[in-house]
Design a protein around this nucleic acid. Structure first.
Lengths: 337, 337
DNA sequence: CTGTTAGCGCATTCAA
DNA sequence: TTGAATGCGCTAACAG
């Protein structure tokens, strides 16, 4: 490793002051074009790279944002991150990614490690095990934060979400229109707005169509995969639903497997529909009807708002969109008997 | 935002020097237990958070590593990142993630922006469009780097890879043993070690079993999805292969679709086998036989070696493992006619 | 065991 | 338009 080249090096070589070099590098208007060119040329020649720590320390800016998500290995979040990244790269920002693995303690630890100036802002989609908003309330006071997809009702902050109520409502309607009368619901994220709205959409659709609901038709997600699987299996045995609507992609796999184990034919015996961004949904056996969220665009939007906050631009409530999901109908929820 | 609490604040409150505070915070052995406790207690009370920029600048350490991957929305990489993250979290390191989107220019830009002390080390899986190793050769001289999964042959650095040759060989053998005589190969990553070894395994298996190969049986990946799809479709029409082996997950989806479009039955008309970490592989129609790499473990191993480098531990070539893939056989490659 | 001193590399006053 | 001086917050010599 050769001696590090710093502003000092450049200044010495060019017989100018450090201040001049620094300003030239930052394209300050108070430096002549000639000097700027000289500095930039030498910088390139010597492969000068600004030391981010020093720069951050001085300027109180890190050119870095943090993204906190429950899980990367989830198509929705990895797509959303792509959207975030695209926006960040345009602004030359770096992206720190943290996974909470749905654990609210890890989540808290991450956010706390970030408030001290490691990043300029935070994008977060909160973990399913989080039930207290107090921690986030103090967070948003300290640093710009934008919530995306998963948020809590009582936090006063920018939230980029989808039309969870509407899409669950439409999905349920779709099943009803295809003749289903006993629709089970696989519930998750029930502590979050997201989950609550989805359930409500399901409920309201049933009610408006005069269908009854009994508690047995609802299965709640459990971190333990086997438990979730067994609950679904029991549901199928006891309630004999003619359709299942899954509020998360994660629960649809065990649902498929449980049907298989019980020799139930999809979609003849049971129709399955899920919130999902699975890229292989169309290739599943049978193909899976999905409520697909515009994950990439949600990421872009959320990042866009975060940068507006960083630019100290004023944001009105009206300009924050509710993103629209798409119900992609496939033969898994049509009759074809 | 209240006045920031720094070491100075703590020192003033406790009537000790800032050096003492700093040392206490770093759990130095040259500070009495009592003082440490006093400092720690006040730090907690005042919610002191060490300023990372200042700390990094002084100590020349960032407690951050970078992970550069082609794509997050790829089950292999997202699982590998999980492995990396687990190790990083244990050591209290932060993880910066960069996606190259298989673009070697973006890749170069990222690495260059990292050499100036933004991170302590880099984990990288290189993009498929990269064909020159010169850039990486200079990189590894400047900063600790560990390559994982995708690497270039002529770089002298630590590489954590899988048994690409062996697994491709075994996969081909499996198809031959199931009666296939005209096995097509969907090729990708051909500039990288990874891709080359996979092809070689396929070739050697054919040769050892006395099967011939003609160029038409090989289809190369194209960034343009439609092109890839059309190439595969043409392959199916012209060569009428009885099996397809795909060197990447990305190409198996168009292969499925092309078969569907041509009314070819899988696995009766064509058997398909792929390198893949797809979590839904078992649910596809028909289920997909895969060569599954231990993605999570590869991430763990790679991160482990990077931390060994950071700890300046000596690493012998012998202790770097070649990770073993698993051939998961599903009915998509068995007869069942 | 504790304190004094001196920077890390850079960006920003303010004066020239 | 340029330069000299100052300090961001922290750590590491060294001395006491």
């Amino acid at each position: 490793m050769t001696e590090n080249v710093t502003v000092k090096t450049l200044a010495r070589e060019l017989n100018v002051s450090i201040a001049t070099v620094s300003k030239a590098l930052n394209d300050s208007h108070e430096i002549s074009i000639e000097t700027k060119q000289k500095v930039l040329a030498l910088a390139k020649k010597l492969k000068y790279e600004r030391n981010p720590s020093a720069s951050n320390l001085r300027s109180q800016k890190t050119k870095t944002i943090a993204v906190i998500v429950p899980e990367i290995a989830n198509s929705f979040f990895s797509l959303a991150i792509n959207g975030i990244e695209e926006i960040a790269r345009k602004r030359d920002y770096h992206v720190l990614i943290y996974q909470t693995h749905e654990n609210s303690e890890i989540e808290t630890a991450f956010t706390e490690s970030l408030v001290c100036g490691r990043v300029d802002g935070i994008l977060i989609s909160i973990s399913s095990s989080t039930n207290s908003s107090s921690h986030f309330k103090s967070l948003v006071k300290k640093i710009p934060v934008v919530f995306f997809d998963r948020a809590l009702d009582d936090i006063d902050a920018i939230k980029v979400t989808t039309d969870d109520y509407q899409s669950a409502y439409q999905a349920t309607l779709h099943l009803i229109e295809n003749g289903c009368k006993n629709i089970a619901y696989l519930s998750a994220l029930s502590k979050l707005d997201t989950g609550k709205k989805r359930i409500q959409g399901y409920f309201d659709a049933l009610k408006n169509k005069g269908l009854s609901f009994n508690k047995g038709l609802m299965v709640t997600h459990d971190p333990d995969r086997d438990k979730t699987y067994n609950r679904i299996k029991n549901l199928l045995i006891i309630q004999k639903p003619d359709a299942i609507i899954s509020s998360v992609e994660e629960m649809v796999i065990p649902a498929y497997n449980a049907c298989k184990a019980l020799d139930l034919r999809i979609p003849d015996d049971v129709k399955i529909l899920s919130f999902s961004n699975l890229s292989t949904a169309a290739l599943l056996n049978p193909s899976l009807t999905t409520i697909t969220q515009p994950a990439f665009e949600i990421g872009q939007e959320a990042a866009g708002f975060l940068f507006k906050l960083l630019d100290k631009k004023y944001i009105t409530t009206e300009e924050i969109p509710v993103m629209k999901s798409v119900l992609i109908k496939r033969d898994s929820t049509s009759g074809h008997t």
